[in-house]
Simulated assay, not measured.
Amino acid sequence: MTHYKITIITLLSTLLMTSCLSTEEKKIKAEEEGNAMVSIKSKLIKGAGDALKTDGKEALESASEGIGEAFKGLTTGYDKSINQAKVLSDSIFSKTFEIGRTEKIYSDTTNIKKVTVYLIANQSFDRKIKLKAYDQSKREIGRSTKKITIEEDDALFIDFEFDNRTPLLQADYFIISHN
């Protein structure tokens, strides 16, 4: 045999002998590898826990802020919804009142048709106010009158009730005034 073949056979024999571990040695090696893996994973989990302690508060604050913004969007969406009533006024009315939130309320089952207007008084007032409904063609389609008494710098919701035959869903805008 050549020297080259003898060297290869010797190397292979050595590798084979050293790689053949007994069953007990294999179990010990597997246990050591398992312990190492558990140690690594537990350190990862501990690191994640430590990160949550320090950064978790900031993450929750950020999530809460995001939820708050979503609710703001919800209320903005409500304000732009079909139930919002577009209420206009003339300059005389605007000197007396500031118009706040408005809402159209209609129900076929209870035959309730009304527009709620939140008014803030710039001065005391004790008279009737009128709300007229107009369609897209600028034709009046209904009206409602209410007598109110309010002190300066006070506010109240006023429900203007409309006749059941008023097509309130077709109302494009409303004009509020006082005599």
Rank of each mutant, 00 (worst) to 15 (best):
A36W: 03
R127E: 05
Q170S: 10
Y118T: 10
D153Y: 09
D135F: 06
A133H: 09
K146W: 00
K29F: 04
F125T: 12
L88G: 03
Y78V: 15
A59V: 03
A63D: 06
K43E: 02
S19F: 11
I105C: 00
G77C: 02
K27Y: 02
L74N: 00
A59F: 01
T23C: 02
L21M: 12
K114N: 10
V87M: 02
G77Q: 04
S89V: 11
A171P: 10
F160D: 06
G100N: 09
K95T: 13
I28F: 01
K5G: 03
Q123S: 13
I150S: 02
K128L: 08
I82Y: 03
K29W: 07
R127T: 06
G34C: 14
S177T: 09
Y106G: 09
S91P: 13
D55P: 12
K46G: 08
I148T: 05
A70L: 12
I148M: 06
L169D: 08
I141P: 10
Y4Q: 15
K114Q: 12
I176Y: 09
E33V: 13
A30I: 10
C20M: 12
G68Q: 15
I45Y: 06
L119Y: 04
K27S: 06
K72Q: 12
D159A: 00
S39V: 00
I129W: 00
A133Q: 12
G49H: 08
D172Q: 05
D159Y: 02
L88H: 07
V115M: 07
L52K: 15
E151C: 03
F71L: 15
D55I: 11
A51M: 08
P167K: 15
R165A: 07
T76R: 14
L12W: 12
R165H: 11
F157A: 14
K57W: 06
K146P: 02
I99K: 05
Y173K: 15
K26Q: 08
A48I: 07
L11C: 01
N111V: 03
K132E: 00
K86M: 12
K5P: 08
K72G: 06
N83A: 01
K114P: 14
I82H: 03
T76K: 15
T116W: 07
D172V: 00
Y4I: 15
T10N: 14
D90M: 13
E25T: 04
L11T: 05
Y173L: 14
V87Y: 01
D154W: 11
T10G: 11
I176V: 14
H3Y: 07
I105A: 00
I141V: 11
S39T: 03
V38R: 13
E65M: 14
A36V: 04
F174L: 11
L131T: 09
I40A: 01
R127W: 05
N111L: 07
N35H: 03
F125Q: 12
K41C: 00
L74T: 00
A48Q: 05
L52P: 07
